[in-house]
Structure formats: C-alpha cells, structure tokens
Design a protein around this nucleic acid. Structure first.
Length: 291
DNA sequence: CCACGATCCTGCTAGC
DNA sequence: TGCTAGCAGGATCGTG
C-alpha cells in the first residue's frame, strides 16, 4: 500500500512524536513471520531501555535508529499502518507488534494482510548490506535527466517494470509509476532503452513532480493507508491516471478513455492517446553474427 | 538479463 | 440477500 510519499509522511509523523523517547517494552507479537531475522523476546531484550534517536526513510522502508546503533527496519508491504497511540487507547484489530515508549506512548504495527516485515540490525554495516542488495537510488535526490539516462542505459526491460524494480529506483510503486508515466506521456510497455532523450527528461521531472506533490499532500489514501496519527492523506483527490482505466474515465489531457493492461500481475492505467505504444520496429537484417 | 506465475494474507466488492 | 471469484498501494522465488 504505501509508496515513497506515504512512507515519508509516516516517517515525519513518527519523528515528531517519538524521537527522544525511551523504549520500555516490545510486545504484541502474534505473527512470528513478521520478524524474519529476530523474535519478540529478542527485540525486547535488544531494545528495552534504549532511546529512539532518529526515524528515517529509505525507499519504502522506515528506519528506527536506537541508542548504541541498533536499527529497526520496517516495511509495510500492502496493508500495513504504523500508528502512534496513547497506551490507554483500544488496540486496533490486526495489531501484530507494539513498541511501548515512555509517557504511555505506543507505536503499533497494524497490518491486516500480514505481509509487513520488521528487520533487526545490530549495527549500521548490517543495514548497509541489506539495503545494498535491495535498493537503488532515491528518486528525490538528484534524479536529473542525465542520471536517469545513465540508469536506463543497457536496460532491456519495459519502462514500467523498471520503475517498479526497487533496485532501479527505490520507493516508486504502482500508483506513482502510472502517474509519472502519464505525466510524461510514455506507454508503460515501452522498452526502457528505446526512450528518446526528451522522453527521459520528461520522465525524470515527472517522477520528481508526482512524488513531491504527493508528499506535500501527505500521501494517497484510497483505502487503508493512514499516517502515523491515523489520518488520511489528500493526494487521492489529485490522481490523474491511477484507477482511471478501470471504468474508462476520460483522460484529463485529451479526453480519451483510459485503458488498463496487465504487467507482471499488476494493473496499469494509461491513456492510449497520450501514451502511445511504441511503433513496431521495422525488421532489420542482422549483419553481425552473434558470438 | 528478462518475463511470468505462484506465493504470502485478509478484506472488500462486483456480479450472479 | 447471500455467495464467490477476483482484485488490492509489495516483494521474492523458481522456472523458462
């Protein structure tokens, strides 16, 4: 569910509410698979009594930095929410982890589908390895046309598949991939290495625009996403592509009916006129034999 | 290297 | 009304 803007919004809320507080207890673990490299008792032993020093976002991960360099990495996958609540407020259904801080302040991981994961890192090096294997650059940190062109060079896949690949760029998901491709006028199935220089430049600026605006609006809530305070975002009212194909709504730029296609088990929404499919390449005889 | 399907889960809804 | 198939903002793994 959450993509970069939703995770960033949550990180900001958690930062303002939790940084500086001492963790008193880890509890509420009722789904061990949520902790692939630790356990409830281990988390409690490792974190109890330690102060939360910072909350960061990297891709779609939330990083909680505790005293003595211990780090928790949280990924919400499709349906997870992280809620800051007073300890006397009733527990939300599907709560699978509770971090109890001082001053009766709790951080609750609420996740109906149980896809969310929490990773424990004993030191920065372990986190660096984990991130290095999974995440590419941050799209809001210096994604110029030149930089994107460099990333695309030699990649043979379809552009939308690449945008969804977290090792290519970290943080883009199905909503913002569709939004950025529509904004840039690029069909989701276009071959990544066939984009023109102008298209790459439009895509880079579209990615920055779409993500930046969504952060300003505190994320997209069309269903279950809530921020750290339990509040909805506002970006759902501003989506221009995602979801429009399901009912063939008109393109806001040209009026054509939106369409959908399926790519890697995901639905893509696009305007067939503003995002034309690639021209079929003329068959060219191969002159050089493959070696 | 790249594409695709299956898998992990529960809740919601369109359609019968 | 009630049931059910299909789909959902993610990511990984195995196969071809």
């Amino acid at each position: 569910m959450p993509e970069l803007p939703e995770v960033e919004t949550t990180a900001r809320g958690m930062r303002s509410r939790l940084v500086g507080l001492r963790l008193m207890r880890v509890g509420g673990v009722d789904w061990p698979r949520m902790l692939p490299n630790s356990s409830g008792p281990e988390l409690d032993a490792e974190l109890r009594g330690r102060r939360l020093e910072d909350v960061e976002r990297r891709g779609k991960y939330l990083l909680l930095r505790f005293e003595h360099g211990v780090i928790l990495g949280l990924h919400r996958k499709m349906s997870g929410n992280l809620l800051v609540r007073a300890a006397d407020e009733p527990l939300e259904l599907h709560t699978h982890l509770v971090l109890s801080f001082e001053h009766d302040t709790e951080l609750r991981f609420v996740d109906p589908r149980k896809f969310g994961r929490v990773y424990l890192f004993h030191e920065q090096g372990a986190l660096d390895v984990f991130v290095g294997e999974r995440l590419g650059p941050e799209p809001l940190e210096g994604l110029t046309a030149d930089r994107l062109a460099g990333l695309l060079r030699g990649r043979r896949g379809r552009i939308k598949s690449l945008l969804l690949d977290q090792r290519f760029l970290a943080g883009i998901g199905n909503i913002y991939a569709d939004e950025a491709l529509w904004q840039a006028g690029i069909h989701p199935l276009r071959a990544a290495d066939m984009l023109s220089r102008a298209e790459i430049a439009r895509l880079a600026s579209s990615i920055r625009l779409v993500l930046g605006k969504a952060i300003e609006r505190r994320g997209t809530s069309f269903s279950s996403y809530r921020d750290a305070e339990g509040l909805e975002g506002e970006n759902q009212a501003f989506l221009q592509a995602y979801g429009r194909g399901r009912t063939g709504q008109p393109c806001l730029r040209c009026g054509s009916a939106f369409q959908t296609l399926t790519l890697g088990q995901r639905t893509s929404h696009y305007c067939p006129r503003c995002q034309p499919a690639a021209r079929r390449r003329r068959a060219v005889s191969r002159t050089s034999p493959r070696t």
